[in-house]
C-alpha cells in the first residue's frame, strides 16, 4: 500500500474492522485489547478472540507474536499520520500555514487515538522503547521523504522543505512524549507561535527564501 496520500490509504482509515485485510483486523483488535487491558496484559489469545480468528491464524499472520503486532500497530499510526500530513501540506498556501496546520492536525490525530493515548498514560516506556535506537530516526526520515517533497513549492529547495517536515515531526513527537504544561499543539495559536517564533526566522536567516507571493508571513 502506498504511504503517500491516496484512495487506498484513506480507505483503511474509514473501513474499521469488517472488510479490511486480515492484518488490519488483527491490528485493530490489538488496539481494542490494549485500550481494555494495557500492553503488558494483552495476550495473543485476547487479540485472536477480538479479531474473531483462531490463535493459529493470528500467529500465521504475525509470526513474531505480540511484538510484531505492536510494530504493525505503530506502522499503521505512522501511515495514517503521513496521509493526513500530506493532505495538509498540499492545502497550505504559506510556510506558516503549512507548518502550523501540520503541527495541529498531527497533534489532533495522535490525541484522538485512544489506544495510543492509553499506552502513553499507562505504559509510556513501551512507546519509548518502540521509538528508541533508530525507530524515531526512521520515523523522521519517512516524514522527511513523504511530506518534504510536498512542501518544496513553499520552501523553495528540497533540502529546506525536508528540514521543515522533519522539524514538525520532531516537535510533535517531543510534545507527544513530554507534553508542555498548559499549552497544547492542537491549539492553532500555540502551534503558529512556535512556527513563527522559532522555526521560520532561521530559514530566512539561512537565505532559503520562499517563492515571492506565496508566503504571507514573510517580512
Amino acid at each position: 500500500m502506498s504511504v503517500i496520500a491516496g484512495a487506498d490509504a484513506i480507505e483503511v482509515v474509514d473501513t474499521g474492522i469488517v472488510g479490511a485485510t486480515p492484518h488490519d483486523r488483527v491490528v485493530a483488535a490489538l488496539m481494542e485489547c490494549v485500550v481494555r487491558w494495557g500492553v503488558q496484559k494483552t495476550t495473543v489469545e485476547d487479540v485472536a478472540r477480538a479479531a474473531g480468528m483462531s490463535r493459529a491464524t493470528v500467529y500465521r499472520l504475525f509470526p513474531g507474536g505480540k511484538r510484531s503486532m505492536l510494530d504493525a500497530a505503530a506502522l499503521t499510526i505512522v501511515m495514517r499520520l503521513v496521509d493526513i500530513a500530506c493532505r495538509e501540506a498540499q492545502l497550505a498556501e504559506s510556510q506558516s500555514d503549512a507548518l502550523t496546520s501540520l503541527l495541529v492536525s498531527a497533534s489532533e490525530f495522535l490525541a484522538a487515538d485512544e489506544a495510543l493515548q492509553f499506552v502513553l498514560e499507562h505504559d509510556a516506556g513501551a512507546v519509548e522503547a518502540q521509538l528508541a535506537l533508530g525507530g524515531l530516526d526512521l520515523l523522521f526520515v519517512t516524514i522527511g521523504e513523504t511530506v518534504g517533497p510536498l512542501l518544496v513549492p513553499l520552501f523553495g529547495t528540497p533540502e529546506v522543505a525536508r528540514d521543515a517536515a522533519i522539524w514538525v515531526a520532531r516537535i510533535v513527537a517531543s510534545h507527544l512524549m513530554n507534553p508542555a504544561g498548559g499549552a497544547s499543539l492542537v491549539q492553532q495559536d500555540v502551534a503558529r507561535h512556535i512556527v513563527e517564533t522559532y522555526f521560520l526566522p532561521g530559514i530566512y536567516e539561512s537565505g532559503a527564501v520562499a517563492i515571492p507571493g506565496r508566503d504571507s508571513t514573510q517580512v
Binding site: 524515531l136 530516526d137 522527511g144 520532531r170 513563527e196 522555526f199 521560520l200 526566522p201 532561521g202 536567516e205
Partner: peptide
Amino acid sequence: SVLGAPVGRDLSDEAATRELVRTQFLGG
C-alpha cells in the same frame, strides 16, 4: 530530539552542526 534522532546528520561535523544550531535552534 536531535541527540536522540540525528536523522543522518553527522553531529561531529562541526560546520554542519553549527549551521543546524544557527537555523533551527537559535534562528528565532
